[in-house]
Design a binder for these strands. Structure first.
Length: 144
DNA sequence: TAGGCCATCTGGTCCT
DNA sequence: AGGACCAGATGGCCTA
């Protein structure tokens, strides 16, 4: 898959000249535990990455080509939740038109919360922002 | 080539 | 004691 930095745990077994008779066993046991811990940590991180992938799928994407980084994913999720929350609150008031709904989202997306995404900035500026929120509203896909 | 992002290893800390 | 979680270090890959 990706990078695999020099497996220093394999170096673990390379120095095996201990005078103490119990030392080799102790060393092997320590090596085994370390390797087991590494495996668990790998598995844990894979679980975390799976969770990030699932989050990426439900969070709005700014351009389909580029995968959001972990940090960007969290920022986007945060903004998304806040936006949805405001929508929920707002719909209790009389008729919020679609346009208002869109503006709402941009309102919530404070610059500091999406500045990390500015590399996707489009020449069309604000227009692009409006057209790049592919979530659904009221059964309609909002991607005008 | 520098900088960003990532995977992995590792040692420390906390919890069961 | 052993597992889960975390943060720092390290090194690889990719892009501007």
């Amino acid at each position: 898959m990706k990078s695999r930095p020099s497996p220093s745990c394999s170096d673990f077994g390379s120095e095996s000249s201990e005078p103490d008779s119990k030392a080799p066993e102790k060393f092997e046991s320590a090596t085994r535990r370390r390797m087991a811990a590494n495996a668990r940590e790998r598995k844990r991180m894979q679980g975390l990455n799976t969770a990030f992938d699932r989050l990426r799928k439900v969070v709005p994407q700014w351009g389909q080509d580029k995968k959001l980084s972990k940090y960007e994913t969290l920022q986007m999720a945060l903004s998304y939740i806040v936006a949805l929350n405001r929508i929920l609150t707002d719909t209790r008031r009389p008729a919020a038109p679609h346009r208002q709904w869109l503006d709402l989202q941009l309102d919530v997306m404070q610059p500091e919360s999406y500045s990390c995404l500015m590399r996707y900035e489009h020449p069309a500026g604000q227009e692009y922002v409006h057209s790049s929120f592919p979530y659904e509203f009221d059964g309609h896909h909002v991607h005008a």
